[in-house]
Structure formats: C-alpha cells, structure tokens
C-alpha cells in the first residue's frame, strides 16, 4: 500500500495539483553558446535537463556519411546524481536509455528537414541533472529548444508530456511518485496540431481509456508549446535588441 493518497477523493494529487495541471515549466535557450551550436536548459517540475546540439557538422567517420540527408544522433546522459540515490552505473548502455535514444531519433528525423543538410551529422546530447518522472517528455521539449537554437530547419515544435491513468482518472504530467504508482503514456505532439509524433506506452493502459488519456495529453503538450514559444520570442527579442545596440 502506497504511503500516500495518490489521488484523493477531493481531487488533489500527491503534490497538490489537480488532474489537469502541468508542473511548473521553465526554459531558456542558448545557455551554452560557446560549447555548442545550439543549447537549452529546461525545468519541468523537478526534471532539470541541459541539451546541447552540435551540427550540422562533418561526420567524425566516413561510414556515417549519408549522401541524401543529415545523420541525426541522440545521446542521453543520466547523471549519477540525478536520482534520490546516487547510482553506481552511468545508465549509458541500459536498454531503457538506448530505447529512448532510438525513439527520440525517430521522432525528430520526421520533424527536421534533414535533406537540407546532406553529408553532415547532427549530434544531440541530453544531460539530465535531476529526474522526477516524465523524463522522456521533458527531453522532447529540451531537444526541440536546442535544435531551434542551433538553427536547424524544422517543420514545427515537438512538445511532449506524460499522462497517467489512475483508476479512471487521467492525470497530466506525472512526477516520479505518481509514475511508480500507475501506468503512464508519453505523448509527443507536433505544433498545435493533433498529430502525434511519439506515443510511448511502457505499461498496460486499457484501450477504452486511451482516448481520454490522449485528449488531456494533447491539451498539455499544446500548453507546453505555448510556454516554449513565449520563451523563444522573448529570447529573440533580447537578441535583436542586443545586436542592434
């Protein structure tokens, strides 16, 4: 039996949010202008993520050269201090990490105009400084911001969030306590559309409930898109002001 009321009959979650509320969301871009071509820092609840993009650049080895389009790679680094307990392994070659990397690559391959950059590679590194549930969604958002900062052509924002199902109630943007207590779905949406670029279901979710889960998830991603958009415009504005001075 869990020590907490995960979702109380009064409709409050373990951290005080209601079912359809996102966690606090903060982001900034161009945080590491000297270290990478594009970078972002993102806080989604207690998830803290730095994303660095290098490229388009010449591939380090010949074998990676693709004459048709750029080669996209994503490396995830879950730092050893990111969880409550210091972990011994670096999580580098864990199945789960590799799977995330693969699905992130697949998601962005569809959304980037890679054919504009043949014979190059675009390398994305994600460093998770702190983890608190729904990390895959947070990584989608972080990568989107860093890619925009790097100036790589893309069709639209990709924004992600996780949604859980507690009994019959869908809960938006799970933290780690909630994630451990219920099955969840991670959704990635393109822009303000209802097109899904990612749908990751790691546990079982009953098919007849999936629709309500996705509906609240899509609404959540749209809200995140707006927050990212606002930050980008603010950043753009200061940049324009700085350059004109």
């Amino acid at each position: 039996m869990s020590r907490f009321e995960i979702y109380s009959p009064e409709g409050l979650r373990v951290d005080g949010r209601r079912w359809n509320e996102l966690r606090s969301f903060n982001c900034s871009i161009n945080t590491h202008p000297n270290a990478a071509d594009g970078s972002s820092y993102l806080e989604q609840g207690n998830n803290k993520i730095i994303t660095l993009v290098a490229g388009p650049q010449e591939p380090s080895s010949r074998s990676q050269v693709n004459t048709k389009q750029a080669t996209l790679s994503v490396t995830i680094n879950l730092t050893k201090f990111a969880k409550m307990e210091r972990s011994k392994s670096s999580h580098k070659n864990e199945r789960r990490t590799l799977e995330w990397q693969a699905s992130l690559v697949r998601t962005f391959e569809k959304n980037l105009m890679l054919h504009l950059y043949p014979r190059t590679s675009i390398d994305v590194q994600v460093h998770a400084l702190q983890l608190d549930g729904g990390i895959l969604g947070a990584m989608l958002n972080g990568i989107t911001l860093a890619l925009i900062d790097a100036g790589i052509a893309m069709y639209d924002f990709v924004s992600g969030v996780s949604v859980g199902l507690y009994d019959t109630t869908p809960l938006l943007d799970l933290n780690s306590l909630e994630e451990n207590a219920m099955s969840s779905v991670t959704i990635g949406t393109i822009g303000k559309s209802e097109k899904l670029s990612l749908l990751m279901v790691e546990d079982k979710v009953p098919l007849d409930r999936l629709e309500s889960v996705m509906a609240i998830g899509i609404a959540g991603t749209h809200r995140i898109r707006d927050l990212m958009d606002k930050e980008l415009r603010k950043h753009g504005k200061t940049r324009v002001e700085n350059s004109s001075n």
Binding site: D15, G16, E21, R23, N46, M84, E85, D132, N175, L177
Partner: peptide, 24 residues
C-alpha cells in the same frame, strides 16, 4: 510551487528528498 525538503534514512544512510509541493 515550493519544495518539500527532508532527510530520511534508508538502508542505514541518509538521503535527501526533494519534492515539489503546490499550494493553491
């Protein structure tokens, strides 16, 4: 939003726990 911070002992060693806490 604020943070709930506390230290708990787990397996004999101390562990710092940080959780988000929303006030409404």
């Amino acid at each position: 939003v604020t943070q709930k911070v506390f230290v708990r002992s787990r397996n004999g060693s101390a562990q710092k726990v940080v959780r988000e806490h929303y006030l409404r």
